[in-house]
């Protein structure tokens, strides 16, 4: 699976999110910056992304590391 494909799925599912996905076809790493994460726990943030990825996460994506930030958090770590 192409990392771009995962990136587009997340971008389509979360409007306004800044998404970057890298990977070797089996293991992927995604960095997602979205206002939608504001006020959500890590668990809720990851669940939101898993929901967007739906069956792809169950069937086609073997391993996906997630880093989730609000725009404010992202400003602070840049």
């Amino acid at each position: 699976m192409d990392p771009k494909e995962i990136q587009i799925m997340i971008e389509n599912g979360m409007s306004g999110a800044n998404v970057n996905v890298e990977g070797d076809g089996t293991h992927f790493e995604a960095v997602i910056v979205s206002q939608d994460f504001d006020g959500k726990t890590l668990l809720e943030r990851h669940q939101l992304i898993y929901k967007v990825l739906g069956d792809a996460m169950k069937e086609r994506i073997h391993a996906l590391s997630l880093k989730t930030y609000t725009p404010e958090q992202w400003e602070n770590i840049k």
């Binding site: 890590l42 668990l43 990851h46 590391s65 997630l66 880093k67």
Partner: peptide, 11 residues
């Protein structure tokens, strides 16, 4: 439920 690997590492 706490989470998966990423969440454990971040916490």
């Amino acid at each position: 439920f706490v989470g998966g690997c990423d969440i454990c590492v971040e916490m």
